[in-house]
Design a protein around this nucleic acid. Structure first.
Length: 809
RNA sequence: GCCGGGGUGGCGGAAUGGUAGACGCGCUGGACUCAAAAUCCAGUGUUGGCAACAACAUGAGGGUUCGAGUCCCUCCCCCGGCACCA
């Protein structure tokens, strides 16, 4: 009898499945569709480790289970291929980045294939392929046409190492999201997408999504909506006006000073000659500070008086105007009315610089700032004794009559900066004409192909390497035919990943980004599986593009991802993140060459704990899942080698029904670890039963066949092999998920737990049909219970039918 | 500080308010073997006891309940995210 050897069977089945195309999806309306998608991998050149494998294993088990349940499953895979890893490789080697992409995608595909994932490879896409980025460019032009793409000069985040600008979301705590180096600010003209115009919809539609609260909250915080008012404060002298945003207009009477951000445009104009020197020094000082420094929360507040005064529109009080770096230039209007009595930061500032503090909302703690308290108004003229919530609206409405206040909604989210001064990205399809300005490249001239170049090094002037390619840059204006210049910026890689899930529905369409009916058939994605690290960037951008496409009528749905599933990370056995530098990376290749095989790795990925919780990889644990598969293998081999028998036992179908039910129910809840545990339990049970019944029976064959089906989504290779060896036709993976006979689970006896005062003291076996009085009688007479009761009747008896009886004494 | 997720044996983890610790790892013992590996079988929360058994036990402390890992309150710790957002 041959032993279980994954090296022999796994490659064989991988080849067969691909040849027979059993995972290919088609628009068959007779079955319910299910679109299962894992975040498509970003080809950074790093090899796949067991942490990545978990992501794909979760998706694959969902896809395989859905298929066996009779659903029409789309489970595709492709490559997020633009970006700096390939470009840096090109700079180093002088080869085209496409070469690196070719190698990296081939390697990744091989690694995925050896894990036995059920992808429809006929739909493979690559975002750096002209047949793909043609449509990324087309979608750029769609946004441009709809007024959602624009150019603007301003201070942008600049990564000095990557030599390119970054979007807001790509700056994490003052550092570049890719390389981790400190970012700088640079004044540049760049392309933006107007995601702010969709802020409200991006916020509202979050409600209907089956996403974790964690991710929803992150998106809400990022969008950062706050409702309030904008109020104008006139300067005491001159005609200048300082506009502020506030969520607490009710505290207007308590505004005893104003603060401008150091970068506020009014600062120079309103500084009085006496204060000029110290203000200039302060502005310079705060510019020199890195953003990380400015973001330290517990920093002492600093600021300088400008010498000017403004008039509080509520009471005409003359209040000083200061500048301070705790006010941010980029949020609201870059200026605030300071209400020290009701804002902690203003309070600290006022204390330090001895500015007046006036309470305007009655509350109980006069010695500190009461920030979120609502209450009755005080020190507020005609608004006194009004509820603060009411006063808030009334004050704005009253000021609005004289045109100095408006209701206003403010957002933290900024427009999406998509220009990149790099080579390896989709060129922005715009031509700049001295006469006609920015002109869209006509659709029939798409794609704007990335030209082959000699040197991939970015030019020192901050422009893309494409700027050096004259044939690329110098083109006639599509409008007037006169000499014009092509845009040389490329698009942020996140543009490509903002629509790839649609391309999978129709990956080879040469005439459109996708066919509407195909997109409508498959989308939205039913199960979108990936790490939480893309919670803000990718998911926000993709939702934005989807809504734009909806508005254009390209699709009829507003949200791309119905259910988002964030898998827990796999850590190294030492509990740390896996990284090359720490030398603690565990790769699936290594485990496979050690003889474990893909099936036991897949099993381990899911058995290690709940799929959405992180866990440290266990090297010893691998032995356990391998052993389990080996036990299954041995069982089937022994059955095949056994003499035919007519033996029958009720234990076999009962154990099977129990497992089938447990696994089926758990699978619907994505309880993969407990499903596997139930299967192990079943196998343990079968090992006991094989000592008391003959293995060669038809009953055994049926039980083993079902066991193999239950195991198939987790361990596709061994189950396919055993399915065949048991003489079944077709593939186990296209077979129908087993059902169970509930009747077999009804037991003739039941175990009643007997408690005294809630403590378990005994348990008894009774016929399942026993009545409450039967149970009470028998339980009372149990020798241990009688001892507790000491002949007296219990004060109270609680009976949970068929389960438990509790005597309270 | 705020938001989200956690805290259960030596370890990963399991438990519709009803026998806490399923399943796996590890460990211990046994079978097989000349021997080892592999495999199979049994045991394994802690303390006391030869044992039956008893007490203790789900981060800490309170509460609700006949009964709490599970529900409520207060607090501590760990992980992830955001962070002077007016």
């Amino acid at each position: 009898m041959k032993r279980y050897n994954p090296k022999e069977i796994e490659p064989k089945w991988q080849k067969t499945w691909e040849e027979q195309g059993i995972y290919r999806a088609s628009e068959d309306p007779s079955k319910p569709k299910r679109y299962v998608l894992e975040f498509f991998p970003y080809l950074s050149g790093a090899a796949m480790h067991v942490g990545h494998v978990r992501n794909y294993a979760i998706g694959d088990v969902i896809a395989r289970f859905a298929r066996m349940q009779g659903q029409n499953v789309l489970h595709p895979m492709g490559w997020d291929a633009f970006g700096l890893p390939a470009e840096n490789y090109a700079i180093k080697t002088g080869n085209s980045p496409s070469l690196m992409i070719k190698e990296a995608s081939a390697k990744f595909k091989e690694q995925l294939a050896q894990m036995g994932f059920s992808y429809d490879w006929s739909r493979e896409i690559n975002s750096s392929d002209p047949s793909y980025y043609k449509w990324t460019q087309w979608l750029f032009l769609l946004l441009y046409k709809r007024g959602l793409a624009y150019q603007q000069t301003g201070l942008q985040w600049w990564c000095p190492v990557d030599k390119t600008v970054l979007a807001n979301e790509q700056v994490e705590a003052g550092k570049c999201w890719r390389c981790g180096s400190d970012v700088e600010k640079k004044s540049l003209k760049q392309w933006f997408f107007k995601i702010t115009e969709y802020a409200d919809r991006l916020l509202e539609d979050l409600g209907d999504l089956e996403w974790s609260d964690a991710i929803k909250t992150m998106q809400r915080n990022w969008i950062g909506k706050s409702t309030g008012a904008e109020i104008d404060f006139k300067l005491a002298e001159g005609s200048e006006v300082i506009r502020v945003f506030t969520t607490r207009a009710d505290t207007l009477f308590g505004a005893t000073f104003m603060v401008l951000a150091p970068e506020h445009p009014l600062v120079k104009r309103i500084t009085t000659t006496g204060q000029k020197k110290s203000i200039e020094d302060y502005v310079k000082e705060s510019q020199a500070k890195s953003d990380i420094e400015r973001q330290e929360t517990d920093r002492e507040k600093t600021g300088i008086f400008t010498g000017s005064y403004a008039t509080n529109p509520a009471n005409n009080a003359k209040i000083p105007v200061w500048i301070a770096d705790y006010v941010l230039g980029g949020y609201g209007t870059g200026a605030i009315m300071a209400v020290p009595a009701h804002d902690e930061r203003d309070w600290k500032f006022a204390k330090k610089y001895k500015l007046p503090i006036i309470r305007v909302v009655q509350n109980e703690a006069p010695d500190e700032a009461c920030t979120h308290d609502e209450g009755l108004m005080m020190n507020s003229g005609i608004y006194d004794d009004m509820r603060s919530e009411e006063a808030r609206e009334q004050i704005v409405a009253d000021l609005n009559k004289s045109g100095v206040a408006d209701e206003h909604v403010n957002y933290k989210i900024r427009d999406w900066l998509i220009s990149r001064q790099r080579y390896w990205g989709a060129p922005i399809p715009i031509i700049h004409c001295p006469k006609d300005g920015a002109v869209a490249v006509p659709e029939d001239q798409l794609p704007v192909i990335i030209p082959e170049i000699e040197s991939y090094e970015p030019s020192g002037d901050g422009r893309s390497p494409l700027a050096r390619v004259e044939e690329f840059v110098n083109v006639p204006c599509p409008k007037c035919g006169g000499p014009a210049e092509r845009e040389t910026d490329t698009m942020d890689g996140f543009a490509c990943s903002s629509w790839y899930f649609l391309r999978f529905a129709d990956p080879h369409n040469a005439n459109a980004a996708f066919d509407k009916s195909k997109a409508e058939f498959w989308l939205p994605v039913d199960d979108y599986i990936g790490g939480a690290d893309h919670a803000v960037m990718h998911l926000l951008y993709a939702r934005f593009w989807t809504k734009v496409m909806f508005d254009e009528g390209l699709i009829e749905f507003k949200e791309p991802f119905k259910t988002l599933r964030n898998q827990g990370n796999i850590l190294a056995p030492d509990g740390q993140k896996m990284s090359k530098s720490k030398g603690n990376v565990i790769s699936p290749d290594e485990l496979i060459s050690q003889g474990y095989g893909a099936d036991s790795i897949r099993l381990m990925e899911l058995f290690i704990g709940p799929w959405n919780q992180s866990a440290a990889w266990s090297v010893e644990g691998m032995g356990g899942t391998f052993r389990f598969l080996q036990r299954v293998w041995t069982l089937v081999q022994e059955h095949i080698a056994s003499e035919e028998s007519e033996d029958i036992t009720p234990e076999l179908p009962r154990a099977l029904a129990k497992a089938t039910k447990a696994v089926s129910l758990d699978m619907h809840e994505l309880g993969f670890n407990t499903s596997i545990a139930s299967l192990m339990e079943l196998v343990n049970e079968l090992y006991k039963l094989k000592t008391i019944t003959k293995l060669g029976s038809a009953q055994w064959k049926a039980v083993l066949t079902t066991l193999i089906q239950l195991l198939a989504p987790f361990a596709p290779h061994i189950t396919e092999e055993l399915w065949q060896r048991l003489g079944n036709t077709g593939s186990v993976h296209t077979s129908e998920w087993p059902s169970w006979d509930e009747k077999l689970l009804i037991s003739e006896t039941m175990t009643i737990v007997i408690q005294v005062n809630g403590k378990v003291r005994a348990n008894i076996e009774m016929p399942a049909a026993s009545s409450e009085s039967d149970v009470t009688k028998l339980a009372q007479s149990h020798e241990k219970i009688a001892e507790y009761l000491q002949g007296k009747a219990a004060q109270k008896v609680i009976y949970v039918p068929n389960k438990l009886i509790n005597f309270v004494i």
